[in-house]
């Protein structure tokens, strides 16, 4: 009798074969699903690449160095759009990075009462939920008129500088960059705030204990310690800015001519594709695919650089 009691006890501790097979099928399920994500990405890249082959054969490298996009003559090159994509994103980053990190500092420190901070966090996150077409329309009706005096002033006083060498005409690189900066602000803020908030509290006490002021603690200890997270968020934001289509196309002016001035109309790769796809066929459509492939490559390079920076500075 005692032996049967022992037996029933050990039986309870043995896991049934169904439970074990559930375990292993769960592991397989997660594996398959994660590979599925990679497969979708590869599939998109291959399809876009295959579609682009005729254009690649036709134009080769000159596609990226030439500056005329001329459908009637079947002449395609996208240097102005590459320039527009990179410069509008850099303007966005230049504006959004300091503001985003400043927001993250305020939201992770106790300058404000917790209740106020919670509302601010919510509002910043709400910025990310606004559809991009709304940003674009807001840009046309509010931002572009608002920037008119600033743009004119820049041209009149700093017109000798290539970036301000044309009249402010309204749609152009500057409003596009500013719209993009607002759109990527929540990404930079949220990720920077998370990485600041996840620093161990002992780090902060340690810094105060050697006689740091609050500013020294924030700028010399906390921000360097959270730097990899801040860079990660910034690069994610840059990726978003490079690929943003709707808002950019509404305010950038869609001019395919190369112009260094940020006050002049310009174009981005994503905006070019969105505008021309519906009526494109043949070589024009293949060229748009080629352009898409290049945008793909640019974002890939950005992400690789981000990963390298994060690896290099990773501390926590």
């Amino acid at each position: 009798m005692s032996s049967s009691a022992v037996n029933s006890q050990t039986d309870n501790k043995n896991r049934s074969s169904t439970e074990k097979s559930l375990d292993s099928s769960f592991i397989w399920l997660t594996r398959i699903l994660s590979f599925l994500v990679a497969a979708v990405l590869l599939w998109i890249a291959i399809r876009v690449g295959l579609q682009a082959i005729p254009a690649i054969q036709e134009f080769g490298w000159s596609f990226m160095t030439g500056s005329s996009w001329n459908p009637p003559e079947q002449q395609y090159a996208i240097l102005p759009m590459i320039y527009g994509t990179i410069v509008s994103s850099l303007i966005a980053l230049l504006i959004a990075f300091p503001i985003g990190v400043a927001c993250a500092i305020v939201l992770s420190e106790n300058f404000l009462p917790q209740s106020v901070r919670r509302i601010l966090v919510f509002l910043v996150e709400l910025l990310a939920a606004i559809p991009s077409v709304v940003y674009g329309l807001w840009g046309i009706y509010v931002l572009i008129p608002f920037l008119k005096p600033i743009g004119s002033w820049l041209h009149q006083n700093l017109g000798w500088f290539p970036l301000f060498s044309t009249q402010y005409v309204g749609p152009g690189m500057l409003p596009a960059g500013i719209i993009l900066s607002i759109m990527i602000l929540p990404i930079i803020t949220a990720i920077s705030r998370d990485s600041l908030a996840s620093l161990p509290p002992e780090l902060r006490s340690g810094s105060y204990a050697v006689g740091s002021t609050r500013w020294q603690t924030i700028f010399s200890i906390l921000i360097p310690a959270a730097f990899s997270g801040i860079v990660g968020g910034t690069m994610l934001a840059l990726g978003r800015a490079l690929g943003e289509t709707m808002a950019a196309t509404l305010v950038i002016g869609n001019s395919n001519a190369l112009n260094f001035s940020v006050l002049a109309p310009a174009n981005t790769i994503a905006s070019l594709m969105a505008n021309q796809f519906s009526e494109a066929s043949g070589l024009q459509r293949d060229s748009l695919m080629y352009a898409g492939l290049i945008l793909f490559a640019i974002t890939l390079v950005v992400n690789i650089i981000a990963e390298l920076i994060i690896q290099k500075v990773k501390k926590y």
Binding site: P200, E202, L203, S205, G206, S207, A209, I221, A225, K315
Partner: peptide
Amino acid sequence: FQKPNPFP
């Protein structure tokens, strides 16, 4: 401190 907390 209780937990060693060198700066990174």
